[in-house]
Design a protein around this nucleic acid. Sequence first.
DNA 1: GTGAAAGCGCTAACAC
DNA 2: GTGTTAGCGCTTTCAC
Lengths: 344, 344
Amino acid sequence: MVKATIDDVAKLAGVSIKTVSRVVNREQNVRESTRERVQQAIAQLNYRPNLSARNLASQRSHLIGLVYDDPSAYEIPSGGFIIRMQQGVLRACAAADYELLIHPCNYRHRNAGDKLHALIDQVRPDGIVLAAPLSNMPRIVNAITAKGTPLVRMSPGEVNGDQYKVVTNDREVCAEMTRYLASLGHRRIAFVTGHRSHKAIKYRFLGYKDGLEQSGLPFSKDLVCSGDNSFGSGEACGDSLLSLDTPPTAVFAANDDMAAGIMRAADRRGIDIPDQLSVVGFDDITLARQIYPSLTTIRQPLSNMAERAAHALINDPGDGSKLKGTDVVPSKLMIRESTGPAPA
Amino acid sequence: MVKATIDDVAKLAGVSIKTVSRVVNREQNVRESTRERVQQAIAQLNYRPNLSARNLASQRSHLIGLVYDDPSAYEIPSGGFIIRMQQGVLRACAAADYELLIHPCNYRHRNAGDKLHALIDQVRPDGIVLAAPLSNMPRIVNAITAKGTPLVRMSPGEVNGDQYKVVTNDREVCAEMTRYLASLGHRRIAFVTGHRSHKAIKYRFLGYKDGLEQSGLPFSKDLVCSGDNSFGSGEACGDSLLSLDTPPTAVFAANDDMAAGIMRAADRRGIDIPDQLSVVGFDDITLARQIYPSLTTIRQPLSNMAERAAHALINDPGDGSKLKGTDVVPSKLMIRESTGPAPA
DNA sequence: GTGAAAGCGCTAACAC
DNA sequence: GTGTTAGCGCTTTCAC
C-alpha cells in the first residue's frame, strides 16, 4: 500500500498543493466548494499528512512528551499513578490528533538532563508535561526550559514565576480528611510523611496539622513517621507506630502505597482494621479498592490534571499566553472500609 | 538557544555535511582523524540530528510504537501489566536512541483500525510492538501489516505464518503450578478462566488440565469458572466456587487480578488463606506482593518479553530477516503465602 | 481565493 | 575517504 502524498491529492482535486495544505490545516480563505472537493480527494486516497515532513517545514511535531520519575528506580513500582497520568494526556492527544511519547527520567542519574535534551532535540515535542516530583527539581525543569520547549508542571510544590502549572488542593483536602478522622472520635492520629524530594507532598503534612488544629487536637511529633512513598516504608512506619506505648488509633499516610504497607503491618500483628485501627491514604490507586478492607483515601484527579496540562500545551497559540497561572483541580475524600469509630 | 544543524558542524569541522552524516550514523569509510574532528565539533556545538529531517530523508523515524488494549475501557485498570511492558520496550529504546510512543487501542471501537492507520501514516514508527489480546485479533493485526509496518506480536496465541512473536510457556508453567498444588495434598483444585478474547490465556487452562492429569487427579467441569480477567469477575467466581457443596481447597486463577478477587470473596466469608483455601494467580503484578497474604503466582517476564520484541524491531535490517520465528521467554513460579497444605 | 517557488535538515546515489 | 547533488513531503512567503 503506497502512501498518498499531498501531490496526489492536489492532482485528483485539481488544485495546487497549497490549497490542499490549507484545507488540511483548516485555514481561512478557501472557497467552500473547493474545500469539499479537496476533502473528497483526501477521503478517496485515504491521505494523511506525513508528520515528519510537516514537522520539518513547520517546526511543530504534533507530539507531546510525558516525563515522569522512572519507575524502574523503585523496587516495586505500583504504576497506577503513571497509568492514570498517561490516560489523561492521551485523552487530550486523541482529541487533537497528537501522539504521546513517554520518557521516564531517572533524576538520580547524572545524565538525566542530557537524555532530556536528546528527546527535545531529536523529537521536538510541541510540549512536555512534567510530573511530580521531577516538576519541583530545578535541574530537570531547567534542562527543559533551556531548550525553549513549552512545559506544564504537575504538582510542582511551591513555585516562583507564573509558568502554567496544574495542582490539586493537597493541603485543604488533607485537613478535611483529618477532621473526618477526628469526627469519628480519633484523638491519636498519626501521619506518615512522603518522600523528601516530593515537594507537593509536604502540603499534605501541613493539611494534617491544620486538620488537627481545626479539630482541637494537639500535634505530637511522636505520631509522625518519615516514609519515602514506598509500600515498604509504610510497613516500617506501621511497625514503629504500632509499637508505641500508646499507639495511634488512626494513621494517615501521605500516599496509598504506604497506607497499604501500614495495613499489612497491622495485619501481621493481628490488629483489626477498622475496629482497632483506622488507616487512610492519598491518591486512590487501583490497589485501594483491591485490598481488604478497601482503603479510605483521597482521590487525586491525576488523569484530569494530566489532561488539562496536555490540553493547555496543545492549544497554546505559541506565544505562551495560555501557559500562565495555576489550575487547581480538587481532590476528594473516598470513604471506604478502612476507617471506623475510634475504639473505646 | 538556537539549534545547531549539520551544516554548522560541517563548517566547524571543515568537512562536508555528508561526512558529518557518516559519523553520526556510524558508517564505514571515515578516517579516524576525521571522525574525531567531527565528533569534537558535534560535542562543541551540542549538535543532535533533527529527527524529522532524518525521518523524512531516510524513511525511518527512530520511534517505536507500543500498542495495547486501552485500559480506560475497564472499570478498574490495574496498569501493572502495561507499565512492565513499557519498561521493557523503553530499555530497548534507550539502548538504541529510540523513543517510545504509546498508543492504547480500544478494539471494541469500530474505528480502532483507523486510529492505528493515523498513527502509522503520520508518525511512521519503525516498528510496532503489539500486546495481547490485540495480538490475536486479525482485524488489528491486519490494520498494521497492511501498512507494511514491521510488527512483533506478544503472546498471540496460536498463529499462522512465521512472523516473529514473543511468547511465554503458559501451558507448561501452568501444569507445573497445578502439580505444585497437588503436591501440597490438594485434590479439588478449581480453575478460573480468563477473557475469551485473549487467546494465550487458553493455554493456561490447558496447562491446568495437563497438571491434573500428570498428578493423577480427575478433571471436573464443576470446578471451572469463567472470568474475564477482572478483579470483579474473580470475586464472582470465588463466590460461586465457595458456595459449592464440596468447595475446592485450592483455586488457580488465570491472572492475578482475578486471584485477588477470589481472596477477597474468601475473606468476606471468613475463610482463611492459606489454611482453608489456597489461591494462586498468574502474572505477578505489583498487587501480588501487596495483598495479605501475599499471592503465590507465576511471574510472567513481561518486561523481558517486551524488551526482546522491541530489540528485534530496532535491529531488523529492513528485510525482515530477523523478524521470524518464535521467542519463548519462560515464566516461573513465585511461591508466597497464599498457598499451603490442603486442609485435613 | 489560489498558486509558484523556496526552503526546513537530513540521507542517498553517485561522483571524484 | 570524501564531496556534490537531489530530493523526502510538507509549510511558508509572496505573488497573482
